[in-house]
Simulated assay, not measured.
Amino acid sequence: MTDMPPPRIRTRARGTDANPETRFDAHTREAVDDGWTPEEPPLARTEVRDEAVRAIIARNTSPDIGFDRSINPYRGCEHGCIYCFARPSHGYLGLSPGLDFETKLIARPGAAAALDKQLRAKSYRCDVIALGTNTDPYQPIERERRIMRGVLEVLQRFRHPLTIATKGAMVERDVDILGEMSGAGLARVGISVTTLDAGLARTLEPRVPSPVRRLKAIETLAKAGVEVRVMVSPVVPGLTDHEIDAILSSARDAGAVAASWVMLRLPYEVSGLFEDWLSRNAPGRKAKVLARLREMHGGQLYSADWGHRMRGEGLYAELTAKRFDLAARRLGLDAKLPPLRRDLFAVPLGDDRQPSLF
């Protein structure tokens, strides 16, 4: 990937300027200068298309994931995290996991209506719905689209338990819903803090709120009575691993009550994108980072084996887990939180189209 031709489009605050083919592509494309390229290529801008949805709840049976259903209001993510494991999912849409993933977004404005219909089905059985498992529900376009807000309003009406995973400080906007639901044992929020180094964060996660801003979001939610889990996710070996203790301590001081971590995952096309990022932004650490990853995955940069893909294997993976566990225990972030309530779930008498008379 490092031999790709220069981009024919300018980028600003993006994780990558490359647009590699996906494993689904039948043909290989190569950029060629035909003499018509302007002296200053156009700036890459975010494009949003709407997707009509009949069902919004996705199911999974993965044995190492703690939920069996999830909702993602958007496909693609403007946050542009270079390491994002979800990048390859854009290939299912015929789009690249590179710059396309950050700039060609799919919004699902009918999510709330579809969810209302699914929850009313007589066959539906309540269990925790995880929000933001693939792409961030609080990425910048949520400010005007408000699809996530609509989903939360439906879940609140049905008294349905939920968890949220996000890097977006915009989660503060919904503190009215989340505070009430958390107080009833129906909601919990996880906020990811990868590094406390603002400069590093700006290149790793170019359109994500700063680390300080995310800690402030933890504080805001905690003061409103929301249970917040800090997610040290991902841990980048040889680059951010030394910050585990500091991240946990800062999050605890902000009000987090629990913590979790995930090792860096580089499935499919993400590995090449991340290697390019290392070459440009951390060339002196590239060899160490890649060596650590190969050490944990049997000589490969990534192994998708269940039970190991989230943490890796070997001495380094074991030492990282031990370091995290010791810090979490010392800071009181190791307590096992009680399960969210399922017994409050109830189908309301009316909906937005046909309100109840009672």
Rank of each mutant, 00 (worst) to 15 (best):
R294Q: 11
A282T: 09
R214S: 04
D127N: 13
I129H: 00
Y316P: 13
G98W: 01
L340S: 04
K322G: 15
R45H: 00
L162A: 14
T11M: 12
A187K: 09
R120I: 09
G168N: 08
V262C: 07
N60A: 04
R143K: 12
P234S: 05
S210Q: 00
P237D: 08
V257L: 12
H297N: 15
A13Y: 09
R280E: 13
I141Y: 06
R120P: 15
S192E: 04
A258M: 05
D116W: 07
Y138Q: 15
G168T: 08
G190H: 07
V228A: 14
V270F: 01
A246N: 05
G80L: 04
L349N: 01
A258I: 07
V235M: 07
F274Q: 06
G284W: 03
L340F: 04
R120G: 14
R10K: 13
R75P: 01
R54L: 11
F158L: 13
L115D: 03
M310D: 13
N60S: 10
A31M: 01
A44S: 09
L315A: 07
I147D: 01
S303Y: 02
R265F: 05
E39G: 10
E39F: 06
V208T: 12
L266V: 06
R353W: 02
G199D: 14
L200C: 05
M1A: 10
Y124H: 15
I164E: 06
L155Y: 00
E47S: 12
S250L: 09
V175F: 02
D241N: 13
N60I: 03
S123G: 11
R214P: 03
V171E: 08
G255K: 03
S250G: 11
R188E: 11
G314E: 00
L196T: 05
A224F: 07
I141A: 06
G312V: 03
L264A: 07
Y92I: 10
S260V: 01
L326M: 12
L186I: 13
G179W: 07
R188V: 06
L178K: 12
D245E: 15
A52S: 02
G299M: 06
L196V: 02
R280A: 13
L119K: 15
W36A: 15
L290S: 09
A246H: 11
A121Y: 03
P140H: 06
I129V: 13
V270Q: 06
R188P: 05
G298Q: 04
S260I: 00
P20S: 05
A335M: 13
M1K: 11
L337N: 09
M296E: 12
S210D: 01
D116F: 11
V154K: 04
A86R: 01
G284I: 01
Q139G: 14
L155A: 07
I129W: 02
P206V: 01
N19Y: 01
F101K: 05
K322I: 07
H308D: 15
R213H: 08
G307N: 10
V53E: 01
